[in-house]
Simulated scan of single mutants.
Amino acid sequence: MGRRLILHVGDCKTGSTILQTMLARGDCAPEGLRLFTPGNGNHGGLPLSLGANKATYPARWNGIARRLSEAEWDVAVVSSELFEYSKPERVAEAVNQHFAPLADQISVIAYVRPHVGRLLSQCAESLKLGHETGTLESFVERFLASGRLDFANRLAGWRAAFGDAFHVRPFLRDRLKQGDVRHDFLDFALDGAPYRLTDSGQDDNAALPVPDLALMRMLQARFADKPLDNRVAFGKQFGRLLRELPPTVPAEPLRLPRALYDAIYPQARSDAERLDAEWVAAPCFLADLEAARDRTIDQPQSLRAEDHHGPETLRLMTAWAELLLRQMDDEPKAFGKRLRGADRA
């Protein structure tokens, strides 16, 4: 196998955090190959420099290009799920300009989570990070209007920009190598070469159950006028703490009401049929959409904190939130580092 640069472009909610953590920690030891990823494994600054943070372009790309040129490697990985929100043709332009010596060695990969799973996981993540403080119904309406469930059209844009170098993998356990996105990605990136994978406690970014999401929604609503970076830092760290402290009573995950399923079904079905026909060897997206009907519920779940937590719990959480509010105007890097703690700095 010749030298190979892997550009991992998402999607969101397809195990990107797990992959980036694995790469940053050096958990994978290929046999006879040098695997390299610049920095901490998460290169979100690259897509942001093409959109929300244009002032950081081209510095972000130049920095990654410099690291790639200075390191010794056989396989290198540049990864960010935020590329999902980039224009593929703009990414291709930046790649050709800044990674020109590697242009014929680039493979681009995207994982795609089926429609209902993506909706639910993205809503839960948005509630956790403070991007969303409304209802599942209002989130779904905006998600559909934004075209985020039009997977096939978006993927066609990546194929137009990168041709046969662009690859798609369905994010379904039974379609992933060993049922694990890490093994699936490594098999692709290393082109089947053998490797050893050390599981050193990968970050778990699984969705929180509904009572925790309701609490997050309440807290993030109180922080709504504070810097977005600080709200996101809070959501990530508080969400991690909640996952590490399992609920004392069984709690359900966020589920799609039947009425919402019926509302998205026609558009999702058309898209799933295209995905199966154009992107995967064995159909799976339509089957997953049909199976999701059996997992729907009759009535929407409440995301009101008072419907899941007693008055005394809410009193204590409100007092804690007011205390934290006094710190949320701090500079985002300092605030985030303080929340992460020394062991995660």
Rank of each mutant, 00 (worst) to 15 (best):
I264Q: 09
A259M: 08
R240E: 15
A206L: 01
H308Q: 05
R274K: 15
R293M: 04
L314P: 14
D225E: 13
M218K: 12
A321H: 06
A268V: 06
V249F: 09
L289P: 10
I264F: 11
P250I: 00
D276P: 14
Q301P: 07
R315N: 11
D225N: 14
A214Y: 04
Q267C: 01
S302F: 04
R217I: 00
I297A: 08
L260Q: 14
P247K: 00
D276M: 09
A221W: 01
P300H: 10
R304K: 11
L228K: 10
R293I: 00
P300R: 01
D262L: 12
T313R: 02
P257A: 10
M218R: 13
Q301M: 09
E273S: 06
P257C: 11
H308M: 10
E278Q: 15
R255W: 04
H308D: 11
E290H: 03
A287S: 12
N230F: 07
L242S: 02
L303S: 04
A305I: 01
A272T: 05
L314F: 08
G239A: 07
R222N: 08
M317R: 06
R222V: 02
H309L: 14
K226I: 03
L241C: 03
L215Y: 03
D225R: 13
V210R: 01
D229N: 12
A221F: 02
H309N: 05
G239N: 03
D262F: 02
E306N: 08
P211L: 04
H309C: 09
A319Q: 13
L213F: 03
A319N: 09
D298I: 02
V249T: 13
F223K: 01
E322V: 00
R315W: 11
R222H: 08
N230C: 14
R274A: 15
L325Q: 14
L256R: 07
L208I: 03
P209A: 05
